[in-house]
Amino acid sequence: MILSSFSAGINALRKRPGLAVLLYVLDLALAFVLSLGVLLLINEEVAQSGFAPDFAAQFDFTVWMDFSEQVGDAFFPIVGQLLWVIPLWLMWKAVAHVGLVHALRGDAIRPFWDGVGRFGLRAMLLALMYVVMLVMAVVGLGLVIWILNQLWGGEVGIFWVNFVLAPILVVSVFAVLDLMHDYSRIALVVDEQAVRDAFGTGIRWAFQHGQASWLYLLWFVVAAVLWLLPFGFDFAATEATALGMWVLFLVQQAAMLGRSAATVGWIGSETAFYETIRLREMPLYADVDEEEAAPWSYEPPPSPDADDPGLAMA
């Protein structure tokens, strides 16, 4: 079941590679535009300083500090841009996710933007509810970590609590929330559940279906490796020539395109998994209308895709 859902995700990616490219290109375009400020700022002070060739080859703390002193506050607007970019991008990620679920569900080809348009607003509401969950989780985690620190004092305790336990705990809790959010979004799109119901479905799903966690973990590992790769390249590279810089950049971009592809595959997998489970539960209600067949106690709105077989794959 896990493996078949996993390969369903791969198949979805194979069918719709354009979606991965779309996600990737938008991230790249925004990041590139934002980073232009750095280019201008550095070159204004350094390009004609004569230190550029040395500095491109090797980091020089003294010259870097002189530069930092020189540009001073000019750096802040560049960082400041992130204050509005990140919330905006969070919204985009929320709507893009339902767009993906819509595009990848079933076996019919559905336009991504159609999903964004139809479910975008509800996806944002749903995301807002998960933001509240996230804030609660952060507070709870902070409390747990604080208590652990009190219980297990000394530098050995500090090390294990803060550098080992806390990161594992934080990543695990965030991952569970992310898993719930994923299935809430799928319920929102596939079953056209109301926002509040979809929220509940996601939470229940995480507890009811152990295999969902394994599927999540599988993709998590793939995504984490792909995410870490660009940093690894950064540390390994000693690029000094213009060509070297671009080669490093392109290699990193390849990893990041892979990471976007993983997002598409991941969502494709989870959607397939959800639909398979839902189909399995259906025979119990084989004699009733499909819209009443849902095992939930609420009434889902009639689905325009109700005649869709709902199976992404065999």
Binding site: L30, A31, A47, A52, I86, M256
Partner: peptide, 24 residues
């Protein structure tokens, strides 16, 4: 004039921003 330093750190900044966006 040599724009390599600016380009180098611009590309690094772009990559780091992309990574942040992915993390989101």
């Amino acid at each position: 004039a040599d724009g390599r330093v600016g380009r180098k750190y611009q590309l690094k900044t772009a990559v780091w921003l992309q990574q942040i966006f992915t993390l989101i």
